[in-house]
Design a protein around this nucleic acid. Structure first.
Length: 424
RNA sequence: GGAGGAGUGGCAGAGCGGUUGAAUGCACCGGUCUUGAAAACCGGCAUACUUUACGGUAUCGGGGGUUCGAAUCCCUCCUCCUCCGCCA
């Protein structure tokens, strides 16, 4: 959520940013400013009434002590008149406040200056392409869903039977490889100085709203209605909310957290080749890295996170490219996002495996996550996060790219985790 | 699930229906002293909204109520603790 003060101060920049996103309801900015002005004047008037009530009440106490009953009685009626007016104000104010909140929640983050306008994912900029020749597979190479079935690594039918389409069941060496990847990613994160977190997999509405997933992603999350809890679509929600409503000391920044969780996404509206095999599933495993950073250093940290993710893909020997998302494709809460795509050689397709973003103060404003500066003032932190990495598609890439006539080769870094170097 | 108890500032811990945003201690910051440190002493130290400023308002788990006035009384929800039951 943007701060009203920032909108007020930088109205032109905000509007410019919204245009970059193809955001069509620009008028809302003026509405917000107007609502906030209304809020202020109502607040001031209400405060004045309250102040009079407080003053008079204190006087009544004094009068009673002095035994001046008559005067006290008079003062009492005075107070009830003020209370009448105050009540009227309160209803007005509540109404304005909720309108303001709804309006603010509907405004996305302002893109970083480096973000180009663009309409859709087709306009994303490739900022680092794969420098080598893309892998060419031999005649008869199979897509991962056929490999997974042939080597009995994943039972797609079982997932459908047990739950429904989009849910998969890993078994045998497939399950082992999946677990190896999780452990590898967690160990790498630990080595890089991230504290490992194992959070709850369901969150309440307050948490989902604090990270901006509600109301934006309402229909994309699984909702347990009986308890009003949401299955997490990413570990970002519980991990970031760990620091909700906190004021931290400046010297603890940056806070580096990493966690593995399954991620649940309804993916309503997806269809066709996109959802084949592991390309898009309703439940997948992911290790997420989160940083809570000083505003002055957040973009430097974003770059570090990008390099960290690139390093993981290097170690897994997967061909990849990095994209800077254009305004039209940028997530609601993000100011700048880099996507990582691996090349899945049998499908001849680029698959998104990571998204690394800086949210600046968009989340921290909602989270009320601040740090205390040396001079004692409180300032909002910047929050960042990235997938490191999303497993299902990594699995797809590994299976396809490493298939040989002898079997599927396991990258060297994973072998200590799998206990085998080839799947036959 | 049943019975009882409790939720106050970063922490600990007072708190009477009426100048209580809240005693006190610890922690923290600044200063005096000291060659330096410790100790001692002095001062500062919640958050938010609002105001050019003085100031005003709100917040003692959340919400509602009683009252001229509520941290203090009542209702309700949440959380934690103790005991019993059940159970990975």
């Amino acid at each position: 959520m943007l701060r009203v003060n920032d909108i007020n101060k930088d109205k032109d920049r905000v509007i410019e940013g919204l245009i970059k996103r193809n955001y069509n309801n620009i008028g809302i900015i003026d509405q917000i400013i107007e609502l906030d002005n209304k809020r202020k004047s109502l607040q001031t008037e209400a405060d004045q009434y309250q102040s009079k009530i407080n003053q008079t009440s204190r006087r009544i106490g004094q009068l009673f002590k002095e035994g001046r009953q008559e005067e006290a009685k008079l003062a009492k009626s005075e107070v009830s008149a003020y209370k009448e007016s105050l009540k009227k104000h309160d209803t007005l104010q509540k109404d304005v406040l909720s309108q303001l909140e709804v309006a603010l929640l509907s405004v996305p983050n302002i893109p970083h200056p480096s973000v180009i306008a663009g309409q859709s994912e087709d306009d994303n900029e490739v900022i680092r392409d794969w420098p080598h020749k893309l892998p060419e597979l031999e005649e008869g190479a199979l897509p991962h869903w056929e490999l997974a079935s042939q080597y009995k690594l994943i039972d797609f039918k079982a997932g459908v039977k047990i739950t429904g389409s989009g849910f998969v069941l890993y078994r045998g060496k497939g399950a082992r490889l999946e677990r190896a990847l999780i452990n590898f990613f967690l160990d790498e994160a630990t080595k890089a100085g991230f504290e490992e977190i194992m959070p709850p997999h369901l969150v309440n509405a307050v948490s989902a709203q604090a990270t901006g997933n509600l109301p934006d992603k309402e229909g994309q999350m699984y909702h347990c209605v009986a308890d009003d809890l949401y299955l997490i679509p990413t570990a970002e929600i519980p991990i970031t909310n760990l620091y909700r409503d906190m004021i931290v000391r400046e010297d603890v920044l940056p806070i580096k957290l990493a966690g593995y969780t399954p991620c649940f996404r309804r993916e309503a509206g997806s269809y066709g080749a996109d959802v084949k095999g592991l390309n898009r599933v309703h439940q997948f495993n992911k290790v997420e890295i989160v940083q809570i950073a000083h505003p002055d250093r957040s973009y430097q940290i974003l770059d570090q996170m990008v390099e960290y993710v690139a390093g993981l893909l290097d170690k897994l020997e997967l061909p990849y490219r990095i994209l800077r998302l254009c305004g039209g494709d940028l997530g609601f809460t993000s100011a700048l996002t880099f996507d990582f795509e691996i090349f899945s050689a049998a499908q001849r397709k680029w698959l998104e495996v990571s998204s690394v973003s800086n949210f600046e103060t968009y989340q921290s404003n909602r989270l009320k996550l601040r740090f205390k500066e040396r001079d004692g003032r409180n300032q909002l932190v910047h929050t960042l996060n990235g997938s490191a990495l999303a497993l299902a598609r990594i699995m797809a890439g590994l299976l396809e790219n490493n298939q040989t006539s002898q079997g599927i080769k396991i990258p060297e870094v994973l072998q200590p985790y799998t206990g085998f170097d080839i799947i036959k």
